[in-house]
Computed example of a mutant assay.
Amino acid sequence: MKIVITMMIMMMMMVVVVVGSNGAAVSCGDVVNALIPCGSYLIGEGVDKPSGACCRSAKGLNKMVATVTMRRQLCECMEQTGPSFGVVPKRASGLPAYCKLHIEIPISLHTNCSRIK
């Protein structure tokens, strides 16, 4: 299972950077790389809560998406890649509470990323 996850992460690292209208960009590779420490928690692989390293990475990612364009890019990336990595939606939506994150992106399978502010 870890080999499959590693291969998927490597493939996602090759995703082209999406550039927003204001020049700010977040790549799916950046997002996936930041969430690597959260992998076991997000896919439900034997852990009940995220690790300290996961929370630190998630907080760093949250700081990285400082503009509306970047938050929308993050949302779109998570919607596109989450299912392919086997992310459990309930675990993803619980990450902000566990890590005490104040995020402006709703975590749901039905988020309209274009409405994020």
Rank of each mutant, 00 (worst) to 15 (best):
S27N: 11
A97G: 05
P96W: 09
V17G: 01
G23S: 13
M12D: 00
C55T: 06
A25C: 14
T67C: 11
A34R: 00
G46K: 03
T69W: 00
L35T: 06
N62A: 12
V31T: 15
C113K: 07
M14Y: 00
S51C: 09
V4H: 09
K2A: 08
Q80R: 09
C99S: 05
V47D: 03
C113I: 14
V19M: 11
G94I: 02
K117D: 15
C75I: 10
I105M: 12
R91W: 04
C77W: 01
I5S: 06
P89K: 06
L35V: 13
E45P: 00
C113G: 13
A58G: 11
M8P: 00
M70G: 04
V16W: 03
S27Q: 11
L35A: 12
M10E: 10
N33H: 12
C54Q: 04
S40A: 15
A25V: 11
L95F: 04
E76A: 07
G94N: 09
S114F: 11
V31K: 01
K59V: 05
V18Q: 02
N112P: 02
G94C: 08
P37W: 04
I5Y: 02
S84C: 06
R91S: 04
G46I: 12
M64T: 13
M11L: 13
P89N: 09
F85E: 01
A66V: 06
I103W: 10
K49L: 12
C54N: 06
M10T: 10
I107M: 14
V15C: 07
M13A: 11
G39M: 10
M11W: 03
G39W: 06
R72T: 01
V68H: 04
S51G: 08
M8I: 05
S27L: 08
V88F: 01
S40Y: 12
R71I: 07
V26H: 00
E104S: 10
V16N: 10
V4C: 12
Y98N: 08
P106T: 13
V65E: 02
L42G: 00
I5N: 04
G23Q: 08
I116D: 05
S108D: 15
V87P: 00
G86M: 10
C99Y: 02
N22E: 15
S40L: 14
S93Q: 10
V4F: 07
I105V: 15
V15Q: 02
R72L: 05
A92K: 00
G23P: 06
V88Q: 06
C99M: 03
A25N: 12
G20H: 05
G29E: 04
V16P: 01
